[in-house]
């Protein structure tokens, strides 16, 4: 499932093309340009998720006589993971506030909390998937489950990529402190994180609430 990695590549120019050394006038331009580029990347990611949502909606009734989502999905776990992800979005916001205060330790701490919440979210998602597979629903069971696993899984992969990226960023901040470059990187990842949160709200509503209730 190289897909989320794939999408991430698009982002790479947004955050990856680092900029070091000299303190020159065009520094600011460079960093703001990268943020702008990342916004554009998010637009393409919106289309990507939009297409997956459309696929899911088209296939939502095609269970081919097999199990339906309503039969197998346990909403309690999903509500917990929703809560975890929403909280992590808040903590990533706090991290940005700490960064603007110039508090390096606070920044790293709140990023770590965010990552931890994200990791728990992923843990719960993996557990849910394992549960579903045990119940007899995998990606090949029917079109419904193909669409379900692909949509939810793509979101999960995005979150996982974000986690690796966040850890890499924490290392960079601890080594280099809060510089225009690391600042921009933190801004971008928090943007990404909020974006994934919004996507999850749609997943939660369309896949779980509307699909299961």
């Amino acid at each position: 499932m190289a897909h989320a990695v794939t999408a991430h590549t698009g982002a790479h120019g947004g955050h990856g093309a680092g900029h070091g050394g000299g303190h020159h006038d065009d520094h600011h331009d460079q960093e703001s340009m990268k943020q702008f580029g990342f916004w554009l990347f998010l637009i393409t990611d919106v289309i990507l998720f939009g297409t997956l949502f459309a696929t899911f909606v088209v296939l939502r009734l095609n269970t081919d006589g097999g199990p339906t989502g309503a039969e197998l999905i346990e909403l309690n776990g999903i509500i917990i993971s929703t809560f975890l992800l929403l909280t992590s979005s808040f903590t990533s916001g706090v991290a940005v506030l700490e960064m603007h205060k110039g508090n390096k330790r606070g920044l790293i701490l709140w990023l770590a909390i965010t990552a931890l919440l994200g990791a728990s979210f992923i843990y719960l998602e993996v557990t849910e998937f394992i549960h579903l597979v045990h119940e007899g629903a995998n990606i090949g069971t029917s079109a419904y489950w193909s669409a379900f696993f692909t949509l939810v899984g793509t979101h999960g992969l995005h979150v996982s990529v974000g986690l690796v990226w966040m850890v890499a960023l924490m290392l960079q901040i601890s080594r280099r402190g809060i510089t225009p470059v690391t600042k921009r990187k933190v801004n971008i990842i928090s943007l990404y994180w909020h974006f994934l949160d919004v996507v999850w709200i749609f997943v939660f509503t369309i896949v779980y609430l509307m699909g299961v209730m």
């Binding site: 897909h3 794939t6 999408a7 990507l48 297409t51 997956l52 696929t55 088209v58 296939l59 095609n62 269970t63 081919d64 990606i139 090949g140 069971t141 029917s142 079109a143 419904y144 193909s146 669409a147 696993f149 692909t150």
Partner: peptide, 26 residues
């Protein structure tokens, strides 16, 4: 395009049923 090819890949590689005749694909 990325999504469409990815779904076709899932059909072929993991036996998903997005566009197959059987399994409720479309």
């Amino acid at each position: 395009l990325t999504v469409t090819l990815f779904l076709l890949f899932l059909d072929r590689y993991l036996g998903a049923h997005f566009f197959t005749l059987d399994g409720g694909g479309n």
